[in-house]
Structure formats: structure tokens, C-alpha cells
Design a protein around this nucleic acid. Structure first.
Lengths: 211, 211
DNA sequence: TTCCAATCGGCACCGGGTGTCATTAGCTTC
DNA sequence: GAAGCTAATGACACCCGGTGCCGATTGGAA
């Protein structure tokens, strides 16, 4: 058992050392998932493979569905920061686009892991469904940003619509990225979000129909 | 036990009569859900309240989550029809907007049921999550419609983005409708989808900030 | 050393969902 | 009217995800 870094006891004094790490369990799980399939892998197997009891496993992750999400909270915070610190001169939709694009620039060595992660989230039905619950916070970040710029409450129609639409487009871009072996995620996001900001009124084939 | 109408044996000859109807079970379930809450109502209770065995219940509905969706397939077909029969002169986004709006005009007597249904789907986490899986088909209808008009495959980036964005905006509109007691759903949808088609570039407060 | 605090493991339990199989009920045919 | 086909039903056993509970373990602090 290698020495695990960053295994800081969260708070306070005393108490037993954790026998494993969030990240350890996550990696073991992702291996098994991609190897045997998500549904075919039971939590018992996950726990046993990680050398932890089933009960303990559920103390690290609230549910099997949450395993694939890794440091999503940190991603959220990045997005929130980017938007908080962008200049007020930037139009709302431009800011949103640039923020989403910027937060999806990955280091080359992270890409394989991120592909695995997203392949699970986007393609396994149970995780696809569960994602909705995590995306709520993501949308909230967008809505909270655009709402004051528009002079509307964050829970009103337009900010919510923007948040939903942006999320949808981002997911679509991720799907394309995942489907193409060497696609460039930021580029796909940038393109798709520009389309969104133009209302999808592409000049390409409006009424031409012949080309 | 009242005589149930429309209890047509699906196909073929012979065989035992169904003891209940899809619609019967659905109504019983919706009552119990809104009365005791979704999570607090077990399938056993549902089955017993409907006078059916638990096992039989799962022959009517693939899962507890699917109960609230009623005649969703028929709704899908309506949408598909509307889009199929709209003139080619209509711009893609306009057609989509009009189709969605038209398919959400409800008879006054359907509204209370639809509110119950949507309150479950949009507010109960388990159903909120599950909805993602049903929306796949809805998005497919949109993507299949816009794709040929744009000269792209239906599974490519722009059609998928439009489908995702449209769905998102429609859901946002439904949430607003649900939150306001006497809101007009078609009107909300029309407004929000116009915003989408304009890229959310509302002239309202672009840099004004004072009003 | 003693005490405290947090984690861990095991157990029982609940609820959703499925496979299997015998039973029941209707319709058709003889 | 009886035999036979067909389809729906109900009961049972099972799997799996998730939770509450409690005693046992492990460390640091007093």
C-alpha cells in the first residue's frame, strides 16, 4: 500500500486514520467500470477490490452514481471564479462561452481520465440520469452570473433558459468530443456556444435547399 | 369494479383479460404520490391500492419512475407530426418553436393533471433524474427535424445542440409555469423559445445598467 | 496511561427490480 | 360442453443499492 499523499484529516484532533483515499477508491472503481461495465460491477466488488468494507465505501461516496464525478465541485468553483472575475464589458453570452471554454482546457495527461469519466457519465443510462442532479449546481452558476447583468432574478425565465440552453449545448459538445477520437473539446464548445449565441440562425442553407 | 373502457387486448386471440388498466394504475399512483409523497410511497402500497400484485404492477410499468409519464409517447408523436407537416418555408427555429408551443396547448380540464404530473417530474429528484432518459427521444425528434434543413447528420454537433438547447428552454418554461399559479404555458414557451432563437441577445439592458 | 474522537466493519433491514413457474381465465375449436 | 391454446396473474426467491445501528479499532491529546 503506497503512501497516499494529501490524506489530511479534515478537522479537529484525534480519531482514527482513514484507511483509504477518495481518489484511490475512485481510480479502482473507474478501472473496474471500464473493464467490466458499470452495471455489471457491484458495490461489493468495488469495496473488496479497494480493500474496504461495503459500509465504508458508502462513507466515501454517497452513491455508486457519484463515483464518476471526481472533483466536480472544484470544476464548479473554477467556473464561478472565472465568471466572477471577467470584466463587465464582456457581453453575457460571450462571457459564458469563454468561461465554459476556458474551464474545459485540459492538460494532455488528464484527457484519458476525463474521457473515461465522460464516457461513463454520458453513456451509462443510470449515470446519464443521475447527471441531471449534479448539473443543477452548474446551471445555478450560469444563472447567477447572467441574472444581474439582465436585471432579472436568477430563478426567472430568461436566466434559467440561458443556463439550461448553455448546459445542453455544452453536453452536446462533450458528446461530439467523446465520439471523435482526437477531437478538440474547447474548440467544439466554442463553436457550439457561438451558434447558441447567434440563435442557431446559420446563414448556411436558409431556404437554399439545393446545395 | 367499474367497467373499464378501452381495455382492448392488444393483439391476437385468446388469453386472460387484463385485470386493470394502465390508466387506472396511473391515477391511483398519482393520487398516492401527491398525497403521501413520491419517496414515501412504496410500490407494494401502489399495487395493493390498485388491487394488483407487486409483480403485475411491474408488468404495467417498467419502473416506478415511469408512472408519471403517462402518454408521453403520444405527445412525442404529436410533435413529430406537427414538424413533419409544417411548410418548408418556415425557418427551422421558428418551426420548432411553433411546434413546441402548439403541442403544449392543453384543454382546461387536463391542466390540473398535467400540473400534478409535471410537479412530480420536475421536483422529485428521482424523477428529475429519470426524465433525462425519456427526453432522449424528444431531442431526437427535434434533431431529426432540423438536421436535413441544415444539411447535417442528425447526430452531429449543430442539430444536437439545437435539440439540447430547445429541450432545456422548454424545461425552464415548464418550471416557471409550475411555479406561478395561473401562468400560461404556451405563452411562456413562445417567449423563451424566441429568446433562444435570438441568441438571448436581448436589447433590454446591454450596458445600460441604470434602469 | 487514560480519554476522546473519528473511522471502520458487520449486521440487519428496506425498497426497487427481475426470473421463474404454477395458476387462472378467456376465446376458439371440435 | 369439453379440450386446448393463449395471455395475464400472483407468489416466491433473488439480486443490488442504500441506510441505521453498534461495537471494535486506531490514533492523537491531555
Amino acid at each position: 500500500m503506497a503512501k497516499v499523499g494529501g490524506n489530511t484529516q479534515s478537522c479537529g484532533r484525534g480519531g482514527r486514520q482513514r484507511v483509504s483515499t477518495h481518489l484511490d477508491l475512485e481510480h479502482v472503481a473507474l478501472e473496474l467500470f471500464t473493464e467490466r461495465g458499470y452495471e455489471a460491477t457491484t458495490v461489493d466488488e468495488l469495496a473488496r477490490a479497494a480493500g474496504v468494507s461495503r459500509r465504508t465505501f458508502f462513507r466515501y461516496f454517497p452513491s455508486k452514481n457519484d463515483i464518476a464525478w471526481g472533483a466536480f465541485d472544484r470544476e464548479l468553483e473554477r467556473l464561478r471564479c472565472w465568471l466572477r472575475e471577467c470584466g463587465p464589458g464582456l457581453a453575457a453570452m460571450d462571457a459564458v462561452r469563454q468561461a465554459v471554454v476556458a474551464c474545459n482546457r485540459l492538460d494532455a495527461d488528464e484527457i484519458p481520465w476525463h474521457r473515461k469519466r465522460m464516457a461513463l457519465i454520458l453513456r451509462v443510462p443510470a449515470l446519464q440520469a443521475h447527471s441531471t442532479l449534479r448539473y443543477v449546481q452548474w446551471r445555478q452558476v450560469i444563472a447567477d452570473f447572467v441574472a444581474p447583468r439582465l436585471g432579472h432574478p436568477a430563478d426567472s425565465l430568461v436566466p434559467q433558459s440561458i443556463a439550461y440552453a448553455t448546459l445542453g449545448v455544452a453536453v452536446a459538445a462533450h458528446e461530439q468530443w467523446l465520439a471523435a477520437e482526437h477531437a478538440d473539446l474547447p474548440q467544439l464548445l466554442d463553436f457550439a456556444l457561438r451558434e447558441l449565441a447567434s440563435g442557431f440562425t446559420l446563414p448556411s442553407l436558409t431556404g437554399v435547399r439545393g446545395a
